[in-house]
Structure formats: C-alpha cells, structure tokens
Amino acid sequence: MMDTIIFVLAGAFATATPLLLAAIGEAVVEKTGVMNLSVEGMMAFAAAVAFAVTYQTGNIVLGFGLAVGASVALSLVFSVLVLAFSANQIVSGLAVGILGLGLSSLVGRNFENLTMMAPANLSPPVLSELPLVGLILFQQNAITYLAFAVAFLTWWFLARTRHGRITKVVGEDPAIAHNLGFAVIRIRLFAIIFGATMSGLGGAYASTILTPGWSDGLIAGRGWIAVALVVFGTWRPLRIAFGAYLFGALLLGDLAVQATGFSVPPQIMTSLPYVMTIVVLAAVSRNALLIRLNAPVSLGQNFRPSK
C-alpha cells in the first residue's frame, strides 16, 4: 500500500511535467490577450521531432533543441496569421494545430513503435536518501525540476517585475498599452514564442523521458489538458503548477487503484480534469471582480494599432 502511495505521489510529478510546461507557456500567451489553441499540435510535432532526432543521433540535447525549433516554427505561422493578418485567433490556432498533428505523423512514420532508454533521473546525494520525501521529491528528472522552476519564475516575472506588469497590461487593454508606448504586437509575439518553447519542451519530454518511444497519437490530448489547466489555475502560475500535479496524480491514481484489485470506470477518472475545469471556470467567471483579477480581459481579441 505504501509503495502505491509513493508511486502515485512521485509519479504525479513526472506525469505533470509536460502538462505544466505547456500550460505555463499558454498562460503567458493568454496573459497578453492571445489564445493559441494549437498546443496539442505543437506538442505532438515537437514530440515526434525530439524522438526522431534523439533516436538517430543519441543526443538528447539536440533532440530537445530541434523539437523546440519545430514548435516555434509552427507558432510563427500562427503569429503571422494572428498578429500580422489579424486573423481569428481560435480558428488560426485550430488550423496550426491540425498542421502540427499532421506533421507529427509524417515525421514519426519511420519511428513507429520504436523505444529507447530514458536518461537517468537526478538523485542528489543526501536529499534523495531521505526517507519518503527523498523517494517522492528528489528522484525526478531534471526537466521536472525545470518545469516547476519555470512555473515559479513565471509567477515572479508576472507579479514582481516591470516587464511582467507590462505583459499583463497588454492583455488587459492593448489600446491603453499601445498609447502608453508599449509595442503590443512585439510583446504578443514574444509571448507566443515563449509559449511554443514551453509546448516544445513538454512534447519533447513526453517522447524522450516520460515515455521514451514514439507512436502516432502519443500526446493523446495532453495539449488540451494543458489548455484546461490554464483555466483551472485561473491564469496563475502557482495554481497551475498545483493543478498540473493534481491532474497528474489523477491520471495515475486510476492505474494504481486498479492494480490493488478495485475498479473505478476509467472514463470517470479521465473526465475528472475536464469537469473540474468547467466548475472552476464557472466559479471564477461568475463574479465580475474575480474574473477581472484573473482572466485577461482582451483574451481572444486582436489588436491593430491603427493610429
């Protein structure tokens, strides 16, 4: 029983990592007032590229690098549509997402069902030997620590720095931001690229570390969970990190419960994150003040500096 609990508590960190990375990226994008629904496509494309490159060259750093490059390339298509051409954000995101999924199948085609060894987890000498805590917290992959560090740094950036506040103003009211002399389009572009970088890292982590192998459809809706997480965490990085961990534990809890001989319909467990997201969204949106405090007001609206 103890082993099962440790498995879920420790495993939730690993499972949460790609969700957290992608969700933090998307949260920053949405904070500037842009909704990029191509997260699933970017993650899938990055995952395919990361696996293909790492498998061929044995160089995981190169794999991650090119995966991020692939994801960013997709996001540039999105940026041109949305920022330069003022195309509808929702439809543009879906379009680029479809493109990403198609490209992932294409790149992954020669690597179907291949596997490789996962790189070893970090185990810092003293910490990892602590009873219980060591097992749960200090035997994770480096990327997992990075993901939680990114969440913390993003919180710090948005809440504590001048650039962070500017970023939020852009999402609150791009016209005011423009009048104050901030380059709205450029800030949104940086945010989109940051988001793509995070989605790329998340996708690469999924195919090289979390499940070191490639099969078409590997991302399996994790991009959509990330989009849900942003809402679940009410656009706040630390809450998103908590949500990612919770969703990760939920995904594993089902398996662990099964292995103990009980059985919950797996569909209920799988639906839970989405149901919880709807509940949270309704709860924070209900109150005009609450939603203003959390959700970026101009989300989904394009901005053209006409004068």
Partner: peptide, 25 residues
C-alpha cells in the same frame, strides 16, 4: 495483479501502468 488500459493505444499509460505494477512488487 492486472491493470486494464481500456485502450489499444496509449503509450504513456502503458508505461505508467507498468511502473504502478512494479511499485507494487
């Protein structure tokens, strides 16, 4: 001990299921 994936195709769950079983001995 058995874990039912209820899927033909979900690699991350394949892996987590195996890990879950290994964690139970």
């Amino acid at each position: 001990k058995v874990v039912w994936l209820n899927a033909w195709y979900d690699p991350p769950r394949d892996r987590s299921s195996a890990e879950s079983l290994i964690s139970q001995g």
